[in-house]
Design a protein around this nucleic acid. Structure first.
Length: 416
RNA sequence: GCGGCCAUAGCUCAGGUGGUAGAGCGCCAGGUUGUGGUCUUGGAUGUCGCGGGUUCGAGUCCCGUUGGUCGCCCCA
């Protein structure tokens, strides 16, 4: 063996055993629930032309400016490992000419990549599930996509530790007016702001609202809220959304401090947050993005959606003691080589009947029993010379420790 | 991109003020003839993350580096 110690690249990890089962459970549950809401699943490429993200997410957003895995392929094209999938879905909608048949509901699941410092609930390769409703300007679409997300969280058994918070970012005119008001408010007290927030004042004043710094909080407390700057259309959308959330019977609360990081959001912004994951409290987040499809070269296509972090949901499952159990097999054990043929036949008949079963490759009866126990098998089927000659097997229940002789023809039915 | 803490067997961790490594679990083999989970006997395993430095001598001190972890920024 070479003496170099190979490890997964920084910020990536192997999903094995319990971790894989949790991960898989999250995705399968989401897939099943999304289907109930009429979402169809898409799979878009894991890397795209860099422009898809640079244009879609906003050149100045952190994701684009410092977190993208960008590289030149052998043909000299600049490609990027997707840091999120909404831009890719919009690009696919346009590429495939699907803007002819709207609205469409899309679900996806897969790995995303962001070059950042790993910490709790944050990885360089992480996984997201997501749902998008493309081509629907109605607030009802916002509410339904949120209802779907909530349903998934509830189905996973995580709704107790997770709360839904919603906010409105308004439309462009509302936001511009609000932004100007915030700049005016904070500029007057510029020297009282934290260093980070002074920088935000230049780059993204809305972010100051969301600051964790104590010194900022005081100024934020008497800062204007967007409420007073909403246009009639934006207000109507916001009112209708809240009405529909109640219509769906969702528990939610307003949080005027929700500011989403990507440039494409407008109107609705929401997050499902938890206090059980340390600094990474957002488990699912999304909002409305009415201009993104146009950025991809398509027609105006108002849309709304969310993405959820599979690792974060998975961590909540772990902490809640909700890790799915490993499947339990039936183990076939031939006592000696002479019984191997009969054992293989029995093994395949079990599998054909839909009973998960396996047979060890080596070892005497005792070793095979030990192994079956260690693997968590639910039953062992022992075949010795006497059993084979009489067409039966010893069926041992490994939990109860009871054992009975069963005709081979009836074994599968007994284990079904 | 910035900061705190950490890095010893497969895993969880002990190893006062520096003197060439230990436990539990796990793993392997037994406790005679076709039966696991309990019990019992014995056994293997580490270039103490990596690279320098101080020292007669470093797992133990110093520097660097890589990785992990937690936090900031930002985000799922």
């Amino acid at each position: 063996m070479a003496n170099i110690k190979l490890q997964p690249p920084r910020g990536t990890r192997d999903l094995i055993g319990e971790e894989f089962r949790r991960h898989h459970h999250v995705i399968e549950t989401a897939r099943r629930i999304a289907a109930l809401y009429g979402f169809e699943e898409w799979a878009t490429p894991i890397f795209e032309d860099t422009r898809v993200f640079a244009r879609g997410l906003g050149e100045t957003s952190d994701v684009v400016s410092k977190e993208m895995y960008v590289f030149q392929d052998r043909g000299g094209e600049s490609v990027t490992l997707r840091p999120e999938n909404t831009a890719g879905v919009c690009r696919a909608l346009v590429s495939g000419g699907l803007t002819q048949s709207l609205p469409r509901k899309v679900f996806y699941a897969g790995p995303m990549f962001r070059y950042e410092r790993p910490q709790a609930g944050r990885y360089r390769q992480f996984h997201q599930i997501g749902a998008e409703i493309l081509g629907a300007a109605e607030p009802l679409a916002d509410a339904e996509v949120i209802a779907c997300g909530h349903h998934i969280i509830r189905e996973l058994g995580l709704d107790e530790g997770v709360v839904l918070e919603v906010n409105t970012l308004g439309d462009a005119p509302s936001r511009d007016a609000y932004r100007a008001a915030l700049i005016a408010h904070f500029s007057a007290n510029r020297d009282k702001l934290s260093e980070d927030s002074q920088r935000r004042l230049e780059k993204n004043p809305l972010r100051i609202i969301d600051s964790k710094e104590a010194q900022d909080r005081a100024l934020v407390a008497d800062a204007p809220t967007i409420e007073t700057f909403l246009t009639d259309a934006a207000r109507a959308h916001w009112d209708a959304l809240r009405r529909h959330l109640d219509g769906f019977k969702l528990p939610w609360r307003e949080n005027p401090r929700i500011v989403r990081g990507l440039d494409y959001y407008s109107h609705t912004a929401f997050e499902f947050v938890t206090d059980r994951l340390g600094a990474q409290g957002t488990v699912m987040g999304g909002g409305r993005y009415d201009g993104l499809v146009e950025e991809m070269g398509g027609p105006p296509t108002p849309s709304v959606g969310w993405a959820a972090g599979v690792e974060r949901l998975s961590m909540l499952l772990e902490r809640g003691g909700l890790t799915p159990a490993a499947p339990r097999l039936v183990t076939v054990i031939p006592v000696g080589e002479a019984e191997e043929g009969a054992a293989l036949a029995l093994l395949q008949s079990l599998r054909a009947a839909g009973v998960a079963a396996e047979m060890g490759y080596r070892g005497n009866l005792k070793r095979r029993m030990e192994r079956a126990n260690k693997q968590g098998a639910r039953a062992a089927l022992i075949l010795g010379e006497a059993e084979v000659s009489r067409g039966v097997a010893q069926l041992r229940d490994l939990d109860a420790g009871t054992q009975a002789e069963v005709p081979l023809a009836e074994v599968a039915a007994r284990l079904g």
